[in-house]
């Protein structure tokens, strides 16, 4: 059964959101969905780059009121 794993990176600057995302991905099972939230603009672009490099599925990148949300499937 796939799980949804939340990674809260609000208030964290580059490279912390990417580091936290990678740590969570290491623990996640295949099929799990990571929901990463943050407000550092460079990370919003950097995480999708990393997802591509790791050959994972980028489900969505959404802009919310004052933060962004990235969904990744392992």
């Amino acid at each position: 059964m796939s799980e949804e794993i939340k990674v809260n990176c609000l208030g964290e600057n580059c490279p912390v959101p990417l580091v936290e995302t990678r740590k969570a991905l290491r623990k996640a099972e295949k099929g799990d969905v990571l929901v990463v939230t943050g407000d550092h603009s460079a990370s919003k672009k950097e995480i999708p780059m990393a997802v591509e490099a790791m050959d994972l599925e980028l489900i969505s990148v959404e802009e919310k009121d004052d933060y962004w949300e990235i969904r990744i499937r392992k």
């Binding site: 580059c14 490279p15 990417l18 580091v19 460079a42 950097e46 780059m49 990393a50 490099a53």
Partner: peptide
């Protein structure tokens, strides 16, 4: 560019 970003992206490669 920030060194940490370079190291992380290089690591993934």
């Amino acid at each position: 560019v920030e060194g940490e970003s370079i190291t992380l992206h290089l690591d993934m490669r």
